[in-house]
Design a binder for these strands. Structure first.
Lengths: 148, 148
DNA sequence: CCTTGTTAGTTACAAAAACAACTATTACAT
DNA sequence: ATGTAATAGTTGTTTTTGTAACTAACAAGG
């Protein structure tokens, strides 16, 4: 039996963060999976386009910190299912502009509603004040620019 | 351009949690990967045994909320590399008791040191008080949702 | 122009995860 | 006992991811 001195796996931040992250995405994951057959990478792309409008794969990758191969595959599948349309840039023919189709916007709107409700449920679970502190702290850990 | 009303992906808790979790495990992951060729599932098993002593695969799975096939393969690989030893239970021959070998304990001790340092670095980054609140909040979020 | 380097995105192949079906053993109700 | 269900853990198959190599287009120096 080893010495447990001052260390507990359940308190180790990376572990705890992973557990919480996994738990917290479970319910929402079911929605986009069952309803639209989407993967996590796919809804992330969808949400980026829905929220920010026309973007390139590279821009999404940078924002979501996802590798370009993940984006490439997500975009491919979303285009295949007519959730988004791809347009080559006229000036630089390497880059491709991505826009949601009507169907994509519809899916986004629906998923955004559910996401908002789900986020509210999580906030209710942990308390409004704690939630604000949580977001702020997570932003630091994720090294995202602070809100404001 | 869609209406962004009151929703931001960067503020969506499941998204934010995932980003922070991913970021925070990155550095530590390199250590057990480069140094011992371990996967996340494997160090989790190692840490459970190092911290709590003899356990069965089922117990670890329950504690870490990992699926039994993941555990089974992690245990297999750890046993193969002589980090742990497996012993069949005499009374119930379905269950197997897992113990770290000397080599396993050595790896655990080393990784635990690094984990503690890394945790301390994260705490320093976000502040001691925020860290305590964070852990508390994450513990709530990581709880299994009530049965329905 | 031509080499060399860079960037956007894709594709091929290997590693890992998810999911389902399986073996072996124990429990338990007829 | 004996048939049925439950439990511990494994194995096989399919998806998904990670890594690296690749194509195509641009950029910039000579």
């Amino acid at each position: 039996m080893p010495d447990n001195d001052r260390f507990d796996l359940q308190e180790f931040l990376p572990y705890l963060l992973n557990q919480a992250a996994e738990m917290s995405s479970l319910e929402f994951q079911q929605v986009y999976k069952d309803r639209y057959g989407m993967l996590r990478t796919e809804w992330r792309v969808l949400f980026h386009l829905g929220l920010y409008g026309r973007m390139t794969a590279g821009e999404i990758g940078h924002s979501a910190k996802m590798h370009k191969t993940k984006i490439s595959r997500a975009v491919h599948r979303l285009a295949e299912r007519r959730f988004l349309a791809r347009t080559r840039d006229a000036a630089d023919r390497r880059v491709e502009h991505l826009d949601l189709t009507a169907q994509g916007r519809k899916a986004y709107a629906e998923l955004r509603e559910i996401a908002m409700e789900y986020d509210a449920a999580l906030v209710a679970k942990i308390g409004r004040d704690q939630a604000e502190i949580l977001r702020q702290t997570l932003r630091v850990l994720a090294e995202l620019p602070p809100k404001d």
